[in-house]
């Protein structure tokens, strides 16, 4: 059903209830008048013995506030034993696309994997 006043269609996938998916501005990607606090990426170690894993991001005025906010936002149910926060602008990233030539050097080197080598069935523990 569209809202006749604006021609908007509404989708259940607003998640917490239907929201219009047309006739709604999506922002210009420009900075608002109030300067925005820097963006931090948050990494959480779920338990001892595991790597820190990226869980999301947040804004904070400084590093310490970022850490405290990360605790409140991302570890309300014992999700972690250690948190890293890193300013997003300090991260250098490759393209996530697996077809990116960045990862081409590892694509054709099957001999780097153990399954490349045939070992007779009667050889144990290998």
């Amino acid at each position: 059903m569209t809202d006749r006043t604006s021609g908007r269609e509404l989708s259940a996938e607003g998640g917490h209830g239907a929201v219009p998916l047309q006739g709604v501005p999506t922002g210009q990607g420009v900075q608002a008048p109030e300067p925005e606090w820097p963006l931090y990426e948050v990494f959480v170690r779920g338990k001892r013995g595991l790597n820190h894993v990226h869980v999301g991001s947040l804004h904070a005025a400084d590093d310490r506030m970022a850490l405290l906010h990360a605790r409140d936002v991302y570890t309300r149910r014992n999700e972690g034993v250690s948190i890293w926060v890193v300013r997003a602008d300090a991260i250098t990233a490759s393209s996530p696309d697996e077809k990116d030539p960045m990862f081409a050097p590892s694509g054709d080197k099957v001999y780097r994997h153990p399954t490349f080598y045939d070992i007779p069935d009667n050889v144990p523990h290998m």
């Binding site: 607003g14 917490h16 209830g17 709604v24 501005p25 922002g27 420009v30 608002a32």
Partner: peptide, 18 residues
Amino acid sequence: VSRLELTELLLAGKQKYS
């Protein structure tokens, strides 16, 4: 999009909520 921009769009009533 920036967080502040989204907040402004909500406060201005241009983006909706359920």
